[in-house]
Design a binder for these strands. Structure first.
Length: 225
DNA sequence: ACCCAGGGTCATA
DNA sequence: TATGACCATGGG
């Protein structure tokens, strides 16, 4: 079962190629997207980010100062707009206290930064890991609902497996590389959107065929050594 | 008229 | 600690 995780990357990468994640022009925009996309389709998030950008509000200093009602209006298309307004403000306060020049201030391990992020109300495990990986380039594997479903379907894990357990499984069976983790998570999302429905796997899902492959020699993991 | 989306928090038992 | 309610818009 362990090998399937590494092989799964090669199959998805061969099929879909590089995904160029995270879509976003700046590190802060990545973090904003990470909060706004909580249980929300990315197309809705794009609308909200476009509104924030045109209002000049895609900046933690602006988010902190902006009246809540104005921020709510900007992010309305992303749904849960009242709660997400509070979460964006919480995250902006954290950012201003911990980030300089779009980089984490020195002296803490990735695990310590993760713990710090989780203390922010509105930032849970997936959002924290998305921020660490896609904004700060830390090698942590992001687990989301898609990853759970795909892993249960193709890698033999329990559907209700705990976040940390599944994350550990991925990280123990792959080279520790932020670039690889970035690409793999993006590929899992791509695969889920394109080849899956909630309870079924479509005919052209590349991971279906892979159950039939007896011996598969990974040849692309070397790119991330 | 449904179902779903790149989650997280809080109240309750 | 483990469920359940709640948050809310937009596309299929």
């Amino acid at each position: 079962m362990n090998k399937r995780i590494a092989i799964g990357f090669d199959i998805l990468f061969t099929r879909f190629g590089k995904q160029h994640w995270w879509p976003g022009d700046s590190p802060w925009e990545v973090c904003t997207g990470a909060v706004l996309t909580q249980n929300t389709s990315w197309s809705n998030v794009e609308k909200a980010i476009a509104l924030m950008k045109s209002a000049g509000a895609l900046d933690p200093r602006v988010v902190v100062e902006l009246p809540g009602s104005e921020l709510e209006a900007l992010i309305r298309p992303s749904g849960f707009f009242r709660i997400k307004t509070l979460r964006l403000k919480n995250m902006a306060v954290w950012w201003l206290a911990n980030v300089r020049d779009s980089k984490l201030s020195a002296g803490r391990s990735t695990a310590e930064w993760r713990q710090r992020l989780l203390e922010v109300n509105g930032i849970g495990p997936e959002t924290a890991d998305s921020i660490l990986l896609y904004c700060f380039k830390q090698p942590v594997f992001v687990i989301d609902a898609y990853t759970r479903r795909i892993a249960a379907r193709h890698f033999g894990t329990a559907p209700e497996i705990a976040y940390h357990e599944l994350q550990k499984l991925f990280m123990e069976n792959l080279p520790v590389s932020a670039e690889l983790f970035n690409e793999y998570h993006a590929l899992l999302v791509r695969n889920a959107k394109e080849c899956c429905r909630k309870n079924i796997c479509l005919e052209d899902c590349p991971l279906r065929a892979y159950l039939l492959i007896k011996s598969f020699k990974p040849d692309k993991l070397n790119r991330f050594d």
